[in-house]
Design a protein around this nucleic acid. Sequence first.
DNA 1: TGAGCAAATTTGTCTGACAACCTGACAAAT
DNA 2: ATTTGTCAGGTTGTCAGACAAATTTGCTCA
Lengths: 253, 253
Amino acid sequence: MIESQSHSLLRPAGLGDALAGQLAAAIRGGEFRPGARLPTEKQLVERFHVSRAVVREAIARLKADGFVETRQGAGAFVAARPGLANFRIGQNGAAIPAEDLPHIFELRAVVEAGMAELAAQRRTPADLQALRAAFNEMEQALAGSGAKDGAAADDAFHAAIAAAAQNPYLAQFAAFLAQHFSASRAVTWMPDAIAAGSAQVSQAEHARLLAAIEAGDAQAAAQAARTHITQAAARHAARLTSKPKMPKPQRKG
Amino acid sequence: MIESQSHSLLRPAGLGDALAGQLAAAIRGGEFRPGARLPTEKQLVERFHVSRAVVREAIARLKADGFVETRQGAGAFVAARPGLANFRIGQNGAAIPAEDLPHIFELRAVVEAGMAELAAQRRTPADLQALRAAFNEMEQALAGSGAKDGAAADDAFHAAIAAAAQNPYLAQFAAFLAQHFSASRAVTWMPDAIAAGSAQVSQAEHARLLAAIEAGDAQAAAQAARTHITQAAARHAARLTSKPKMPKPQRKG
DNA sequence: TGAGCAAATTTGTCTGACAACCTGACAAAT
DNA sequence: ATTTGTCAGGTTGTCAGACAAATTTGCTCA
């Protein structure tokens, strides 16, 4: 019988989702080895007391997640490397455990440092222009011109570094990692954080990163990126401990 | 009308898979913005001339891939960051385009270098023991003792480096990247490749990597890892161009 | 023992029905 | 004028049954 996963303030997941989760856990737990055939749809229907449609949806999810492959007439089979078709941070929808954060930021530091190094080596005049423009927008956001969105400029700055590195996979992976912390970056650029000087510290790190890339100094760029992410991790951790300060839930419709 | 995606030597994908691919492409292509509502199931049924079951399976896939979120009674909505819940190399089941390989290996080099650096700093006596043991197994596979599986020892060697780095996310991501090239590593340790000296070159790179980690020399370890991956990329590329040499398809039941 | 074929089984797709939920419009109350 | 409650229509979630396409199994025969 499927155990309903109900998120405290959110809607319960559907049966298909729940069954997929259970089957994935069974595969991960070694109940089915790579290449092994899963129970037939009919068997799953009987075992879990759900309709065939639910079973098929669960299998569709498992296929998307790289856990199984299906062959019409034969069955569903555990993939050669179940679940390794995707790289994912954390479990579906669940918050990242706090004890994982240092490891994730360290992974980010490795990736961002490597990317900054390549950016310093490969940047074009157009890249530098984009970097400068984004940097200047952040400067204006700091000066309180009010018309500039610091967080968006921060995103643009990092996207420009990624473009300068000229490796789309590095860029995608860095963006993938960063999007897990987009809320933290947004907080960095809120009025209270700017007033508290937090954004200025971040911007000083950006300045060092920019200077190194402009100078074509790969080592300095890597080091500046490493420091920036290390400090971002500290800022993020500080936010987690200084719990609900919830300044203004400025919600844009 | 759904265009059938048929893989040249593989079975055609189902309609659900094909529809999911098209909807994902539409979302990626900007046809639906984050937060936008997708056409209703009924509309998709009419537009694509498929049954509702196919539509639902496609949506289940898109949910698993992080492209959409559904709310019962309301509809399916494009996720805040569509497709970014997972990081994936290549498209589902399709071979990685050759022109992407250099970029992927470069990403691997960045990650493996960062990991080797940490391993050199954090390795324990037990780590060194595991590294040595794996290295010795590869030596024996090279000497032709026959009882040792070079590819498995190669895997174990890299797993030991990952363990020494003491960052599970780095380890997982490195393994994720490496599994896309597991066939290439297996070829490195086949009798013909050993006879041709290819495995010896790889092992010499392992030796430098091991020496640097044993010496606790982080810079040398990073450099040795970078070189190893760069050479692995060259070996992989050479295999792609020297096409079907297909020595012996030794298939283990 | 191996080849050929029919029957059984399994996945893929379609169709129809009902349950649960959502949204927008409108009425009633404050 | 604003807030709350109700309801109709629409949408997703689940169930059930039927048939098509592909694979596996079992049986017969040379």
